Amino acid sequence: MSERFFLYDDTEETNIRFISFMGEASRFDLAIIQSSRYYGKKLVLDIQSNRFAIIGQDDLDEPNYIETAFNLNNEEAEELKLFLYEVV
């Protein structure tokens, strides 16, 4: 077996918020991770769908970013965006 070549191997303290809420269209179970990586953006994990994205305010305004990242329809994506505008 050849030696592993690590690009990086860091350990870091993070803040994680676990939140679950029910919208009109669907339920969201999220983990929102804040660290010093990702240029001030947050890592948002949707535990129900096993999908995640690195999200900042600019990404919320990007057309179809949330829909594509989390595989949501327009109504579901709008509910998630409204919540994320409050926490990102």
Rank of each mutant, 00 (worst) to 15 (best):
I19P: 05
G23T: 07
A69N: 04
A53Y: 00
T68Y: 04
E86Q: 15
Y8C: 03
V87H: 15
D29W: 02
L60W: 02
G23P: 12
M1H: 14
F52R: 06
F70S: 07
N71K: 01
F83R: 08
I19C: 07
F70M: 05
M1I: 12
E13H: 13
E86T: 15
M1W: 09
E13V: 09
Y65L: 07
R27Y: 12
F21T: 06
L82I: 00
D10R: 13
E13K: 13
L72H: 03
F18T: 11
Y39A: 11
F70C: 02
Y39Q: 10
F52C: 07
Y8N: 06
Q48H: 07
F5S: 13
E79V: 11
K81Y: 08
L43W: 14
N15S: 14
K42H: 12
I32V: 14
E75L: 09
N74L: 10
F28T: 06
L72M: 08
S35H: 02
K81N: 11
G23M: 05
G23D: 09
T11Y: 08
L30Q: 03
F18S: 15
G56Y: 05
A31M: 09
T14P: 01
S36A: 10
V87S: 14
Q48R: 05
E86G: 09
D9K: 10
K42S: 12
L30C: 06
L7G: 03
I16A: 11
I16K: 15
L43F: 13
